[in-house]
């Protein structure tokens, strides 16, 4: 098995008296889609925020290619190749979809201080932005202001901006949230396509999507890792069924997955 690109060791985050993440250790490897499941409040988004540097850790370590990056700021981690998307759409509303991605790609430009050059005229940046829009299925709306896009398209843009920075590690916080069926389908295809070349951490409530793309699933409850393993193991795990689904009416996704609902709804027993 390949060496982990991004790893956490006993990562802990406390907000006052609340422990949002407790001794979380996991490995993200290239070519592996690592899905994170758990009810609301399990600490999934907190973990992503710790990995991206949006939140400082309370204790524990984060390693990137065996280098300790626990104290690095968000922009430094981004430059190393760790890209993240947000659960709550976090885009540049007044700019066009293209400019959103172009700006993202610009962050990788080697010489940003040449103040007499034209930002729009850098071929590599332009290509990266166009490719990201294309991959996310937004080529047709490239020239529209981001704020005027539909909710689903804004979610796609959220991912496209991350792709435009050409990251090795993708931290995706509910990329399918609020998407229509068509958009969700296309996004799942995109995630499958990205899987082989990236190390991906995917927080997602859509069970169909998770079981369609995940190579490894980690289930979190109350800030702790309950169980981690291949989808088949998670599907069959009594502990997961007990704690996460709150019943023993069959594993998630076992009945074609269609019945699986967003987590935290307390199970789906009739």
């Amino acid at each position: 098995m390949s060496e982990p690109l991004l790893a956490t060791r006993a990562l802990t985050k406390r907000f006052g008296g609340l422990t949002a993440n407790s001794a979380v250790s996991l490995d993200l490897r290239k070519g592996q889609v690592h899905a994170l499941l758990g009810p609301n409040g399990a600490g999934k988004s907190t973990l992503i925020n710790l990995l991206s540097g949006d939140l400082p850790v309370s204790s524990g370590r984060i390693l990137y290619r065996d280098r300790d990056i626990t104290r690095l700021g968000p922009h430094q981690r981004s430059r190393l190749g760790i890209g993240r998307s947000y659960q709550k759409t976090n885009i540049f509303g007044p700019f066009t979809a293209y400019e959103n991605c172009r700006l993202a790609a610009q962050s990788r430009q080697p010489r940003p201080w040449r103040i007499f050059s034209d930002a729009q005229a850098v071929p590599a940046v332009r290509r990266a932005a166009e490719a990201a829009l294309e991959a996310a299925g937004l080529a047709a709306v490239a020239d529209q202001p981001a704020a005027s896009l539909s909710h689903g398209a804004q979610r796609q843009l959220e991912i496209a901006m991350v792709l435009a920075t050409a990251p090795e590690v993708l931290l995706l916080d509910e990329p399918l949230a609020g998407m229509g069926a068509d958009e969700a389908h296309r996004m799942v295809e995109l995630l499958q396509k990205l899987g082989p070349d990236h190390a991906m951490l995917l927080v997602e409530h859509d069970m169909d999507a998770v079981f369609a793309v995940a190579d490894v699933i980690t289930v979190m409850v109350n800030g702790q890792v309950l169980e981690s393993g291949p989808p088949a193991q998670i599907r069959a795990s009594p502990a997961v069924r007990q704690a996460y689904l709150g019943d023993d009416d069959g594993p998630p996704g076992a009945e074609g997955g269609a019945a699986a609902r967003p987590a935290g709804s307390g199970g789906r027993s009739a």
């Binding site: 922009h75 981004s78 976090n90 540049f92 962050s107 920075t165």
Partner: peptide
């Protein structure tokens, strides 16, 4: 427009 996202884009 969005300082937070700029930071997270690197």
């Amino acid at each position: 427009s969005n300082e937070h996202r700029m930071q997270s884009l690197g």
